[in-house]
């Protein structure tokens, strides 16, 4: 069994602070995988290690290729779209320019892709000349998703898509992620504090504690697991 993405004993540091102490995980093509954990458990760093925004050691393999020392520019070219914390929106640029940047690594016309994306986010069409910074938080999160999807990524890394959003919007965004997965076969690795909604969305999940994988398995099992229930689901 070999997944699209495999991490084995990945470690990462911020200066003297060790953020990841040997994380191993696997993402199968066409699935949604969630990473759960408390603040500082290393969720965000895991994504940053994959996209190469933080220096890391250990084995990282994407579609059979060793990620090794590749930086974010190169992993983006391999087809990994990373929507970071704070969404990575180009606030000073227009909605349309943000979408164009999403497809930066691809040659040729992006009209077709944009049309596909607009099917999921129809409202973006009216706002295409608006500065992205003037959108609301939820709209910016959707723009970030749209931008990532225009790139036709093989793997989407999502960092806390629910952060700072009203519950209605969170439901909406997760519905769209699920649709993208089901209809387009998009593979997603999503980091979430909101374990409840993440476990509903993902087929499998990993729980990180202080830079290590503490638990892993199908979402059903984790939901039933007592410590997950107590620490992350709150009942």
């Amino acid at each position: 069994m070999s997944g699209l993405l495999e991490l084995r004993d990945v470690e990462a540091h911020y200066g003297p602070v060790q953020a990841l102490r040997g994380v191993s995980l696997e993402v199968e093509e066409g699935t949604i995988v969630a990473v759960l954990g408390a603040n500082g458990a290393g969720k965000t760093t895991t994504l940053r290690a994959i996209s190469g925004t933080v220096r890391r050691t250990g084995e990282l393999r994407f579609a059979g290729q060793e990620l090794g020392r590749l930086g974010p520019e190169d992993t983006a070219r391999l087809g990994i779209a990373h929507v970071p914390e704070g969404r990575g929106t180009f606030a000073e640029l227009t909605v349309w320019e943000n979408l164009r940047l999403g497809a930066y690594t691809r040659r040729g016309s992006i009209r077709e892709d944009v049309q596909r994306v607009l099917a999921y986010f129809p409202w973006l069409d009216d706002r295409r000349h608006q500065e992205a910074g003037t959108l609301s938080g939820g709209e910016q999160q959707m723009l970030a998703l749209a931008r990532a999807f225009v790139a036709r990524p093989r793997l989407l890394l999502l960092d806390e898509p629910s952060l700072g959003l009203a519950p209605v919007l969170v439901t909406e965004i997760f519905r769209i992620i699920r649709e993208l997965n089901e209809r387009e076969g998009l593979t997603v690795l999503v980091v979430e504090q909101n374990a409840h909604i993440a476990l509903q969305l993902a087929a499998t999940a990993y729980v990180l504690e202080v830079g290590r994988v503490a638990l892993a398995g199908p979402s059903e099992e984790l939901r039933a697991h007592e410590s997950v229930r107590k620490s992350y689901l709150g009942y």
């Binding site: 925004t53 974010p72 983006a76 970071p84 990575g88 180009f90 000073e92 999403g102 790139a151």
Partner: peptide
């Protein structure tokens, strides 16, 4: 404008 975000899109 946003070097970190720009890197992420390649």
């Amino acid at each position: 404008l946003r070097p970190a975000s720009a890197r992420l899109v390649g």
